[in-house]
Amino acid sequence: MQTRFLGRQQQPVSAIGLGCMGMSEFYGASDDAESLRTLARALELGINFFDSADTYGFGHNESLLGRFLKEGGPARRQQVVIATKFGIVRQPGKYERHIDNSPAYIRSACDASLQRLGIEQIDLYYCHRRNPEVPIEETVAAMAQLVAAGKVRQIGLSEVSAKTLRQACAVHPIAAVQSEYSLWTREPEREVLATCAELGTTFVAYSPLGRAFLTGAVHREQLAEGDFRKHNPRFVGEAEKINGQLVAELGRFASARGLTNAQVALAWLLSKQPHVVPIPGTRRIAYLEQNSGAVDVLLNEAEIAELDRIFAAERVAGARYPEAGMAGIE
């Protein structure tokens, strides 16, 4: 597996990471034993950058990773780079959330995450969403105290603007910005990607496969109960039809090259930006293995331009999230 690097510390991570959210919530029922096998296979493939958050499954996701690390012993902990997050506060059974960036909450959330993960230091600790009522300088200063205390190695932000990133970097180096970025979500290209490159901040792309819609294998009527995509604007009604036509074009592009849709979508990200690390999520080994193959796919300029054309912003239908999901996104 090829490597890329996190922030100014140049901490090496696999060029493709693993988003672990679906192992706990949002994508229908999951199986811990299957998830643990997938995590183990990821390491065998050289994928060592695992992404979690305290809100995923209300702590279950971190506990699952903690179990995986414990079962592998100290050697496994040395192999794995753990990223987790704080800031989204939810009630069980509800999608609505509020954002807490207060210093006291940050400290308590970090301690709780460390306990669930069973580790002494979080490799990368993100502010999951920003509360605009709390100055970013105050939030970052509290996170910097965790670095000084040895509880966190590097810090990151999620779904912030270029302006906020600059303000944050004036207080403490920001190793990574995590935001949605894929063929059908291109907002980071406006300003954030260039600012990250300038400041030495890695850009971590979540949902790089469009919540699996880009794979061509997901249809709303087949989604299980409890799958949040049933209510995602891009999966509903006329938007689903329009977006399905784009995915069909992607499928023709991929099949002509002997690739899967997912491999093309990930290769597009890797070929387009050298400081981007995509973190596709899956709990199944077969998809994990397919995704890992994207690192060996090199797209030329003409192919990248063709994919840019297929997924031009004006051709994509629907918002990224329901209204409640947009809380804290700049």
Rank of each mutant, 00 (worst) to 15 (best):
C20W: 01
E221A: 14
I119Q: 11
A294W: 07
R309A: 12
H219G: 03
F203A: 06
V13S: 11
R283Y: 01
R41Q: 12
L259W: 11
P74K: 08
M1P: 08
R252F: 00
L270I: 02
L6M: 05
G72A: 10
A265S: 14
Q91K: 15
A286G: 03
M1E: 07
G72Y: 09
A197I: 01
V192L: 15
G244K: 10
E44Y: 02
L124F: 05
I310K: 07
A205C: 06
V247R: 08
E34C: 06
F68C: 11
S158I: 10
Q9C: 08
E138H: 04
S102Q: 12
G19Y: 05
A313E: 15
L223K: 06
P280I: 00
L209T: 11
R229V: 01
A53Q: 12
M143K: 04
I136M: 13
S35I: 01
S63G: 14
D31C: 11
I47M: 14
V171M: 02
E180N: 09
L298S: 14
G293H: 09
I16V: 14
L165P: 03
T282R: 07
L209K: 07
I119R: 06
A319C: 02
F68G: 04
S158C: 13
E180W: 03
Q115R: 15
E187I: 00
Y125H: 02
T55S: 15
I242M: 04
V277P: 13
A256Q: 15
L65C: 08
G251W: 09
Q273G: 00
V192H: 02
K70P: 01
E301P: 00
G118Q: 10
A267N: 02
Q154C: 09
L299G: 10
E25G: 00
S207F: 13
D32L: 07
S255Y: 00
I155L: 05
A29H: 12
R229W: 13
Y206F: 15
T3C: 04
S52W: 05
Y181A: 04
R257V: 00
R320G: 11
S113V: 04
R90F: 11
V171Q: 12
G237C: 03
H231I: 13
R257S: 01
Q121T: 14
A144W: 02
A83G: 14
P92H: 06
V80I: 14
G251R: 03
R211H: 07
I155F: 03
Y206R: 08
L6Q: 05
K272D: 03
Q245L: 02
P322W: 00
A142I: 09
G66Y: 03
R211S: 11
I47N: 05
E25Q: 15
F253N: 04
V236T: 12
A312Q: 14
G281W: 04
E133Y: 01
D54Y: 03
Q91E: 15
R90Y: 03
A212L: 04
G93I: 06
A305Y: 07
G28W: 05
I329H: 14
